[in-house]
């Protein structure tokens, strides 16, 4: 008898849950599922997208915009299962926020023609495979790197720079190439040292790489991915400048983080949502660049102003008034 009662209770609870899911949705509600390879608080790639979704939710209102997420989906097969599952639950947009998810997406998308998928960072929407419901997005990180590099060159005294990257591929490689080009545009004779940590998460090694860069004379550092928090700590401790990427990193070292390239994912998500509402399911590649505001250089006044004043005081910068 007890068993029977328990089963009834369970069944009731489940049906309430299912019903609330099935019929609770209003016609206006736009539902997004977001799958990412690292954690929502990685202070880099995933966190920036998570914050973009929060921003959109704030603007559109919780009653009109709802999103769910699966974090730490670094195992591609798990991510694929999540993508398929969310699609089958009728989400309007499923964001596969990792370049490694592409192959799974091209398998899954044709089975769910009513769902839109977004994949980044890439410039491939699989139109060659006849797929129509995948959007792609790609930040031109080299542009952000270039601006950071040009700024870095203006601020560096030693003309030696250090880059701390994860693996020499993808976004990190492009950002680094841009950073180098930016420096060279100002100071062609610059010395730019690059280290690759071989991992996105080895904070301790990133920290030692920063130490080695500073020992080698670098007074401006930059880098990408979540492990750079180790390097920012060293920049703070040893008083060198840092240029950030993905999110505004100035909170970690207000005196040292001069500028961060903030990726404004909302710039692509908003038109994407509009298109989906109009019935277009995919096929478009969005780029995030400086021109469309997808990349924003967040200058941290505290560090930049502080550094400028310090340079004037120390006589590194001579302010001349021309007549």
């Amino acid at each position: 008898m007890m068993e029977m009662k328990r089963i009834i209770v369970i069944l009731t609870l489940i049906s309430i849950f299912v019903l609330s899911f099935g019929f609770g949705a209003s016609a206006e509600l736009f539902r997004v599922a977001f799958i990412m390879p690292s954690a929502i608080n990685d202070f880099a790639w995933s966190q920036s997208m998570y914050e973009a979704l929060l921003t959109i939710q704030k603007e559109m209102g919780k009653e009109n915009f709802e999103f769910v997420y699966s974090e730490n989906m670094f195992v591609v097969a798990d991510a694929a299962a999540a993508i398929r599952d969310y699609a089958s639950e009728g989400y309007d947009l499923v964001i596969a926020h990792g370049s490694q998810y592409g192959a799974s997406l091209s398998d899954i998308a044709p089975d769910f023609l009513d769902t839109s998928f977004a994949w980044g960072s890439t410039a491939n929407v699989f139109t060659d495979l006849g797929i129509t419901n995948i959007f792609a997005y790609e930040p031109l990180s080299e542009q952000g790197g270039y601006v950071n590099g040009a700024l870095a060159a203006k601020l560096s005294k030693n003309n030696i720079y250090g880059v701390i990257g994860p693996i020499e591929t993808g976004d990190a490689k492009r950002y680094t190439e841009g950073f180098k080009a930016g420096i060279k545009s100002v100071k062609p004779d610059a010395k730019i040292n690059v280290t690759w940590i071989g991992s996105y998460s080895d904070v301790a090694l990133a920290s030692e790489a920063a130490q080695a860069h500073i020992d080698a004379g670098a007074d401006v550092l930059t880098g990408t991915s979540q492990m750079t928090i180790g390097a920012i700590g060293v920049a703070k401790q040893r008083g060198v400048l840092w240029f950030g990427y993905d999110v505004d990193q100035s909170a970690l070292a207000p005196q040292n983080v001069v500028a961060s390239v903030d990726v404004i994912w909302a710039i692509t998500l908003k038109p994407m949502i509009e298109m989906i509402r109009k019935g277009e399911r995919g096929g478009k590649i969005f780029t995030l660049n400086l021109a469309n505001g997808g990349l924003k250089i967040v200058v941290n006044d505290e560090a930049l102003v502080g550094k400028t004043i310090e340079d004037i005081v120390k006589g590194n910068i001579e302010v001349k008034v021309e007549e």
């Binding site: 954690a39 608080n41 990685d42 202070f43 730490n72 991992s199 998460s201 080895d202 904070v203 301790a204 920290s207 979540q226 928090i229 180790g230 700590g233 970690l252």
Partner: peptide, 18 residues
């Protein structure tokens, strides 16, 4: 020694297999 002496920060999987 990592989180309050050498790196002064915490993140998921800070030790990274150490």
């Amino acid at each position: 020694s990592l989180s309050i002496a050498l790196l002064n920060v915490f993140q998921q999987n800070l030790t990274n297999g150490m």
